[in-house]
Amino acid sequence: MRRQKDVSKSQSPRPGEIMDYLNTRFGLEPELFSEYTFYLGSKGRVFLGPRASMNNLRIATVGLLVARVNGAIKPTTNLLQIFGNQVKSNVVTLEKKNALAFIKGSDVVPSTEEIGLATDGYVLLRYLHFSLGCGLLRDGKIKNMLPKAKRLEVKFF
C-alpha cells in the first residue's frame, strides 16, 4: 500500500500566502490559525496541525488536510466546515433541493439569489447556518468538490 509522504521531512509552505488567500477570499482572519502550524505534504497537500515534535516518529499525517496547492490554492471541505462560521465572503447559501443534491455529490446550478455576492472561484456552500463544504463556482454553476467518501444521501434534513 502506498504511504503518504512523511510530512515531518517537509518544509512548511508559505503559510503567509495561504492565510492571505483565506483572508482575501473568505474573510478568515489569520488569528484563527495562530495556535497551529501549516505543514506541506506530498502533491501540494497542506495540513493545519499542532506545533509538535516529530523526531524519530513514523508519521502518517498531521492535523487536518485544509488545502491543496497546485498553482492555485484550493481549500478543502474540512477547512470550510470547521471554520465555516467565520467565513464572511464567497458564500453560496443553497435552498433545500440544491443542498441535498450537493451533499449527495452532484454539481448544482444555484439561482442568482443563492449565489448572492459570491464571485467565480472556490466558495463555501451553506444550508441555513450549516457549512456544507467546498464548491467551485464558475459561470453560474457549482462543481461539487466533496470527496466521494464524504458524500451521503441524507434523509433527515
Binding site: 496541525g49 499542532p50 516518529l57 508519521i59 502518517a60
Partner: peptide, 17 residues
C-alpha cells in the same frame, strides 16, 4: 484519518508504529 477529518480534529499527529 477519515474519522478525524470528519469530526474536524486539528490537534493530532498520526503515527504508524
Amino acid at each position: 484519518k477519515f474519522n478525524l477529518e470528519k469530526t474536524g480534529v486539528l490537534n493530532t499527529v498520526i503515527t504508524n508504529m
